[in-house]
């Protein structure tokens, strides 16, 4: 029996179960951690024979479905902070636009690839290591610290955040801070995401946890809500400018990812915040090591097709 399906925009034929499986696995991680999964899916699709530019664009399309499904699941659980999400989104769009121009300048100077690769490895390494160590510490301390009252003086960062104007309460997240902070942080993530060519979920999640001090479960739902809007924009832009969105590929991936995202969202509800963080940190570190290996080990073929991440 022929289980292959022809993908007209990718111009290739791929086994249907490989695509459903890939979608399911990445969708599961998306629902679990609140990341889009683009940093995992695009390289996996390229390994399956999809051209880089089509892999990146079609992945954005399938993330729209996975994040819709997962945002809906998290919304029902009360895990989406829409107010915070919109502020981060506005910052992200502005930062992303700035980042795209920055990359154009770098490309003209001929240093773009070096900056992209090094930013990727450094960001993944810093975020992954910090999150891993911090979660490990929290998990070890947790039983001993029960009942302890936090008496330490607020850190410089906390004092700086409190000194910002227009303080407002974000009920869902249980934090009070100035809207300037999520706008700035969203902007920084937007710049980094544009430089790296990804949605930025894996940077946004630690930013929400550590900089905005939001509870992990609300972080996951809110991050997914923001990713949904980003990917709608990217899908339409890619379809119009590059004609690189393969609907058949996206539909097969999203059939797997929407189901996977539901299971991921449910498991995320059962796990503790620190457990979630430590698993995400491990995943980020594995991807960082893989990228570092690609930078150090000489490639088998010294030419590659243009496009993709």
């Amino acid at each position: 029996m022929n289980w292959n399906v022809y993908l007209p925009i990718a111009g290739n034929s791929v086994n249907i179960f490989i695509l459903l499986g890939l979608g399911g696995a990445v969708g599961f991680l998306s629902g679990l951690f609140g990341v889009g999964g683009g940093f995992l899916m695009t390289p996996l699709l390229m390994m399956a024979g999809i051209p880089p530019v089509v892999a990146a664009a079609s992945d954005s399309n399938q993330i729209v479905a996975a994040s819709t499904s997962a945002t809906y699941a998290h919304y029902r659980m009360g895990n989406v902070d829409f107010k915070m999400g919109f502020l981060l989104l506005i910052g992200g769009v502005l930062g992303g636009t700035l980042g795209v121009h920055f990359i154009k300048v770098l490309r003209a100077l001929g240093n773009a690839d070096f900056v992209i690769k090094v930013t990727y490895v450094v960001m993944l390494g810093v975020v992954g290591s910090y999150m891993f160590l911090e979660s490990l510490q929290s998990l070890r301390k947790a039983p001993a610290d029960t009942g302890k009252v936090e008496s330490a003086r607020p850190s410089l960062y906390v004092r700086a955040v409190r000194s910002l104007p227009w303080q407002m309460t974000f009920k869902k997240s249980g934090v009070t801070l100035s809207p300037i902070l999520p706008l700035i942080l969203g902007g920084i993530v937007g710049i980094l995401a544009a430089i790296m060519g990804v949605g930025g979920g894996f940077i946004m999640v630690p930013v929400m946890v550590y900089m905005l001090r939001m509870p992990m479960h609300v972080v996951v739902g809110t991050s997914l809500f923001q990713i949904l809007f980003t990917c709608v924009n990217v899908t339409i832009m890619q379809a119009v400018t590059n004609h690189s969105v393969d609907v058949i590929l996206a539909v097969l991936l999203l059939l797997g990812s929407t189901v996977g995202a539901q299971f991921g969202a449910r498991l995320s509800q059962r796990l503790k915040g620190d457990q979630l963080k430590i698993v995400l940190a491990s995943l980020v570190l594995v991807v960082m090591i893989q990228m570092l290996a690609d930078l150090i080990i000489p490639p088998h073929i010294m030419l590659a097709y243009k496009g993709g991440h």
């Binding site: 399309n61 479905a65 819709t68 809906y72 709608v232 890619q238 119009v240 609907v247 999203l254 189901v259």
Partner: peptide, 15 residues
Amino acid sequence: GVIAVLVALATGFLM
């Protein structure tokens, strides 16, 4: 592009 997004949104909500 719009059809691709609508298909994705509909499937996401349906699931």
